[in-house]
Amino acid sequence: MDKQLSQPIFPNSLDELKSKHSPNFYSKSLYSDQLKELAVCRDVTIKGDDKKTQEFANELSNSVNAKWVYYPWLNSAYEILDEKEFVEVRTNRNQLKITPEEQQQLSESTISIAGLSVGNSVALTLAMERVGGHLILADYDELELSNLNRLRTGIPQIGLHKGVIAKRQIAELDPYIKVTLFDEGVTDKNITSFLNKDVDILVEVCDSLDLKLSLRERAKEIEIPVIMDTNDRGMIDIERFDLEPDRPIFHGFLEDLNMTNEELKNPENKLSLVQRIVGEDISERLKKSMPEIGKTISSWPQLASGVMLGGAASTNICRRILLNEHKKSGRFYVDFEQIIGS
């Protein structure tokens, strides 16, 4: 995989872009319009007054730099605000649900996301809200048609690596967010790099049970919190190994099995172990589905509405953990059928 084709490029000029990357490309300047947005953000009293807005924008142009960003996969370049002002405008509508001081704090955090089916929704929601200035993504898989029931992408991306899709989506949204991609997924060889001591939170949304265990063992070792979404009944699982380093993995649901790590990681034991981990408090439809996995249905059933809800819930918890507003471990539900009823 050509990594150059999955990350934005910041050329010093269009001439440099032509000489180094592409002689022919689409280009468009968004700088002037974004300067006007910046002007209104800094003085809301001029909103609706085109003359005053333009005057202030002209004044800002003396101190606010423009920057070209080139997207190789689109063969397109756009002139935008420099990073500080770009982020100021893009996050302006977050205020004051997120204060400017909190936004800065969030931008200095690093979040690792394992699994990019459900994790795609998590990564994009984190990026939109700008919770995390550095997102570390891991998956080994390519997009298939059956993934389009829950991933916000389309037919032209079928066959493309899921990590590349997510990385491109984030770059088109905000090219200043740093994204690191582990395109082989998380392995025994790279797990310590994927989960290093600079990581603030792990969001674990992968299918592999042995990887779920390995990731928690590593997170517990370096004392970082783990968030897991199951997209069933809006269940969000939180393990605060940062506050409770002796906390048992998976809340102790597997402790009484007296299995070795190898037995826990044996694929033949997967379904029964997953049932113990998610518990009995699952939806009736999932209860009916689980015995059919590997028989009449190919994998764990997921719906777009549950995946999108998981992206929202995971982002909310990440933000509140990073701002020291949430300190609980446990299992929590945002169950629409229970809340809204029939």
Rank of each mutant, 00 (worst) to 15 (best):
3 K>L: 14
3 K>G: 04
9 I>L: 08
11 P>T: 09
12 N>I: 01
14 L>K: 11
16 E>N: 03
22 S>I: 07
24 N>Y: 09
25 F>I: 08
33 D>T: 09
34 Q>F: 02
35 L>V: 07
35 L>M: 04
39 A>G: 00
41 C>D: 06
43 D>Q: 04
45 T>L: 07
47 K>Q: 15
48 G>C: 02
49 D>S: 00
51 K>M: 05
51 K>E: 01
55 E>Y: 03
56 F>P: 05
60 L>P: 05
61 S>W: 04
64 V>F: 07
66 A>N: 06
71 Y>Q: 03
72 P>T: 09
72 P>D: 10
77 A>Y: 03
85 E>F: 14
85 E>P: 08
88 E>T: 02
91 T>F: 01
91 T>V: 01
92 N>D: 12
94 N>V: 08
99 T>R: 11
107 S>Y: 13
109 S>F: 04
116 L>C: 09
119 G>Q: 03
123 A>M: 02
125 T>N: 15
128 M>T: 15
131 V>L: 13
133 G>M: 03
134 H>C: 12
134 H>I: 09
138 A>K: 08
139 D>G: 13
147 N>H: 07
149 N>C: 04
151 L>R: 11
155 I>Q: 11
159 G>N: 10
159 G>E: 08
169 Q>K: 15
172 E>D: 01
173 L>E: 07
179 V>Q: 09
180 T>K: 04
181 L>K: 05
182 F>M: 05
182 F>A: 06
183 D>K: 08
190 N>M: 01
196 N>T: 01
196 N>V: 03
199 V>G: 02
201 I>L: 03
213 L>S: 03
216 R>I: 07
216 R>K: 11
217 E>D: 14
218 R>K: 13
222 I>Q: 09
225 P>I: 02
227 I>Y: 03
228 M>S: 15
235 M>R: 11
235 M>P: 01
239 E>F: 08
239 E>Y: 11
240 R>V: 12
242 D>Y: 12
246 D>W: 06
249 I>K: 13
251 H>I: 14
252 G>W: 11
252 G>E: 01
252 G>D: 10
256 D>F: 06
258 N>E: 15
260 T>H: 06
264 L>T: 05
265 K>G: 10
266 N>V: 12
266 N>T: 13
267 P>G: 14
272 S>G: 11
278 V>A: 00
281 D>L: 14
281 D>E: 15
282 I>D: 10
282 I>K: 07
285 R>W: 13
290 M>N: 07
290 M>A: 12
296 T>V: 01
296 T>Q: 00
307 V>F: 04
307 V>P: 10
311 G>R: 03
313 A>I: 12
314 S>H: 00
315 T>A: 11
316 N>F: 01
320 R>Y: 03
327 K>W: 13
328 K>L: 15
330 G>H: 12
334 V>L: 12
335 D>R: 06
338 Q>N: 14
341 G>H: 00
342 S>Y: 13
342 S>G: 11
